Amino acid sequence: MASKIKVLQVIPKLGFGGAETGCYDLAHYLPENDCKSYIVTSGGQLLKYVKKDKVSIIRLPVHSKNPILMIMNSFLLFFIILFLNIDIVHARSRAPAWSCYVSCLLTGRKFITTFHGTYNFKSNFKKFYNSIMLRSKLTIAGSNFIFNHINENYSKYLNPKNKLMVIFRGINLDYFNPKNISEFKRNKLISEWKIEEDKFTILFPGRLTSWKGHDRFIEALNILIQDHHKTNFQAVILGSSQGRNVYQKKIKDLILRYNLNKKIIFIEHCNNMPTAYSLGDVIVSCSVRPEAFGRVSVEAQAMKKPIIASNLGGSKETILNEKSGFLYKFDDPRELGSILNDLMDKDKETLNLIGNEGRKNIIRKFDVENMCKSTFNAYKKILNI
């Protein structure tokens, strides 16, 4: 019976974010379990890595929030579902979820969503718009933090006939494995980024947006120098401004004010994150708003790197505080500076022990195989298989 399951995942764009990689991983897991796997998307960088013999791609403008296009997508999905005889439609974002909802109502197919983030809900209309993620037969929360967020903020939209459950997001532990790092690629990156190997390297992956907390990070580095008299370090900020020129200027002005321009390296993009992580002695995530999951924290631990993260959202679930990493108060750069100082004082063996605990933690709880298996089992329950 499982061989008859046909799953259509719908996502705006197939990029390298957490929702997108989760969609990609599940899409390739399903054919290995005798299922038909389809993705509807408008495009994205990850498309070129999709194995076309396993996963069928259908291009539609599902990234659009234009009401006319959303209605058009509803009817196009209606015909796709009937033509392909789809059993489950799994929406991973709000705009396409509305289109999926309508098409599933018309076809009588099972509608599933994954609630990936906290989403903005400053107005009642916005909260109503977000509530589409709870109008499915099954809503998957990627962390306990998101599960609690839904219950606290969307209780009136929860239907006891529908199911809400936690399935932790996972990462590919073969891809994020320090044993699989190419020395050639690592040395190439060291050369390209102008990394000085005799210095303690602090890696901060995160696109340039205010809620990622770059300003707190820079203040912490200044404290590291002024209060703790540490100078033998370099920091790499890895992430694109994505057109946020005003915020980028603010961050660069702050760096100049603290005279840190020779300490900080800006890298726009890296298409090999495991190799990037391998260059860091410690990885930092400074979000000032809760992360739904905290992918950087998980990837860093998988790569056996100590992680320092703000004590918000999903990171509180993924990090074993003072064992596989360290949590600090999100608005306290002084505490962040103090933790960085302590880690700089530790020897390589101690840092490696922390890293080993991190990988063990991720293998136990955040393996992509577990995520895919749990989702597949949830599909079967919805279909009474």
Rank of each mutant, 00 (worst) to 15 (best):
H90E: 06
S324G: 07
D34K: 15
K249Y: 07
A141F: 00
E335V: 14
E152R: 10
I251G: 02
Y258H: 15
S103E: 04
F233W: 09
F184R: 11
L312K: 01
K249A: 12
G294I: 10
S136C: 12
K373S: 13
V246T: 13
E219F: 04
D87M: 02
F168V: 00
C35Y: 08
R186H: 12
L76C: 07
A309I: 10
P306H: 07
K373L: 12
N124M: 02
F326D: 09
K188H: 11
G15W: 00
N159Q: 01
K51N: 15
C100Q: 01
D53L: 10
L320H: 00
I58G: 03
L224C: 11
E291S: 03
P178A: 06
K161I: 05
K304Y: 00
K161T: 08
P178K: 06
K163L: 07
Y29D: 08
M165N: 07
F168N: 13
N66E: 10
F168T: 04
I68Q: 01
S310T: 15
W211I: 09
W211Q: 05
K373A: 13
L30I: 07
R244E: 14
V62G: 05
L320N: 12
N66K: 07
Y24H: 14
P96S: 03
K65M: 12
V246K: 13
V40R: 02
N124S: 12
N361E: 11
P306L: 05
N232D: 13
Y24T: 08
D345W: 02
C286F: 02
V368G: 06
K252F: 14
E369N: 12
E369A: 09
S103W: 01
P205L: 12
T107V: 06
L343K: 11
E32C: 01
D253M: 06
I354A: 08
S56E: 14
D253K: 12
R289E: 13
E192L: 13
E20M: 07
Y247K: 10
L69C: 05
N159D: 15
S3C: 13
I57Q: 02
K52L: 15
E317K: 07
I362T: 08
T231Y: 09
T231L: 09
K6Y: 04
T113Y: 11
V89T: 03
A91S: 15
M344S: 09
F79I: 10
I223E: 03
S315F: 02
A302F: 06
A2G: 13
H229Q: 12
A235I: 05
S310N: 04
Q234L: 06
I385F: 14
I146Y: 03
E268H: 09
E192I: 08
P306F: 03
C104A: 05
Y258V: 06
S155C: 01
V40T: 11
D215K: 14
D215F: 12
I171A: 01
A300N: 10
P333R: 04
Y379E: 03
L26S: 07
H269E: 15
F330D: 06
